[in-house]
Nucleic acid binder design. Sequence first.
DNA 1: CAAACCAATCTGGTTAACCAATTTGAGTAA
DNA 2: TTACTCAAATTGGTTAACCAGATTGGTTTG
Lengths: 233, 233
Amino acid sequence: MKIEILTRNENQEIQNEIISKIRDLMNYKNLEPGDKLPSERMLSEKFGVSRSNVREAIHKLEFYGLLKSKPQSGTFVADIGQVAMNGMIEDILRLEDPDFKSLVETRILLELKTVRLAAQRRTEQDLIQMKMALEAYSEKVKAGQDAVQEDLLFHLAIAKASGNSTMNTFMLIITPEIITKFEEHHVCDKGLAFTGIQEHWDIFDAIKAQDPQLAKQKMKTHFKTLYQYCYNI
Amino acid sequence: MKIEILTRNENQEIQNEIISKIRDLMNYKNLEPGDKLPSERMLSEKFGVSRSNVREAIHKLEFYGLLKSKPQSGTFVADIGQVAMNGMIEDILRLEDPDFKSLVETRILLELKTVRLAAQRRTEQDLIQMKMALEAYSEKVKAGQDAVQEDLLFHLAIAKASGNSTMNTFMLIITPEIITKFEEHHVCDKGLAFTGIQEHWDIFDAIKAQDPQLAKQKMKTHFKTLYQYCYNI
DNA sequence: CAAACCAATCTGGTTAACCAATTTGAGTAA
DNA sequence: TTACTCAAATTGGTTAACCAGATTGGTTTG
């Protein structure tokens, strides 16, 4: 799911194998929504793997909402049908690690939306938090220091103000990888931080003024100056 | 059922507590990017909790890219600074479970994008898979059967064809919850399935013709007829 | 005969012991 | 002094034993 190192890839392999075996079992036994999976011990024995491996695989399927473990009771098949179950497991098995381009593409999409929603829904409390993040960012930049973190925190504050918990979560998921990649490629110490200050305040003002279209436009401008440095990554 | 929720919340609680303790420790000890966290055993002893609890908390922070465990070596702080670390942990602790409205809002946003990308990037193989999903859907509807699953699989096929692995992952994450909620509220057995067939084929044709704007427009139409049933949920 | 009950059993979760790879630092040789 | 060696200690991961609570099916009781 994240950037994995070799040792973990090996792990990933046997986990995927277990997941596909679970899928086969569900098909073979014609398990329907609500049915109970064999116990973890039984699965680990049948598959010839350790119980903790089975648990990890179940955890992953649980994360994607396909299974549901009840303590002292059993693991149950979620309320989606067999067709969707097979299709989704197939997709999960073939999931590749996200590349940088895909992350950036998604970030832009999410932020152009969250900034509009934030302009519509922001509370006074949201404004305060955004302003705090923004001032911390400005100070760092003016002191000539690196400010990627403060930058990202401002963007996360916008996501929070959007009032959409799903997008907020997604922003949290992709943010650290973006930070890492940025610092790897030294995107941010190229003197574009100073122009960034004004752009950020423009975005903030538009949100404060509750003008979604303006906010989106300012965010677009911001990304334009930002990602012109990224095309050669 | 209530008990199940309670126990899980309880679990969530102590996990969050551990996470905030880890944050405090990182602040107190001034741990910087790349530094090593105390060992799992030491943390479990210091916090007075079991080692597996500590491991779960670390796993969660690892999922969000804030920590990185190296086997037989230690757990290391990710390459984002202290400020971003504190901000992100704060956000993670306050993360709420996504509500239906937020899920739908996000799904629409994602799909209006993936359908455009799919129109630009789809391969012949993608077309074949989408067509298969679509035919399965049509048959079920014509047979008068429920076809939510096949519906969603078609949409997932579009996400795959978009060539953006991050969006693909996100679609996989929200899909099962959407299915469940849909079936809970009986969104789909209100006779809108038949109109859905044509709408789906329109989307498919636009993708095949590599016309992003048309594809987006058709998807918009599709959502319009779909979610007019959802406003009263 | 049906409903209430209870203990044997089965379950996921937890704990503790164990493993192999990695660090580390004192000792050694150049 | 410096570079190298190697074994002991430390680490995250793995395995197996254990726990408390849920399930279940036969028995009892009204």
